[in-house]
Amino acid sequence: MARPLINVPAKVKRGQVFEIKTLISHIMETGFRYTTTGQRIPRDIITFFSCSYNGEEIFSADFYPAVSANPFLTFYTVATESGTLEFKWIGDNGFSETASVPVTVE
């Protein structure tokens, strides 16, 4: 039941710097742990995140095993035009999740 939670202000003024908050459910299994019977638990993490604003990438990040479960990311951008913010998460075992949120610039 992986699903992202995105928090972006509904309306922003042109030129304003605004905050984008994202949260996604993911176990972020490090690959360094073992079961009680000594079997290695395979790595299962998100490896890449990106956010684009009207098609232009404004933020991206590579994730590594030290990132905690249910990664929460917050970053800023400048309001230029009304449009959409598109979010993408890619990970191990073919994990892929996308989301998009409209932004209204006044």
Binding site: M1, R3, L5, I6, N7, K21, L23, S25, N70, F72, T74
Partner: peptide, 8 residues
């Protein structure tokens, strides 16, 4: 709520 992971 949007930063509380329990919201998921």
């Amino acid at each position: 709520d949007t930063s509380n992971p329990a919201t998921l």
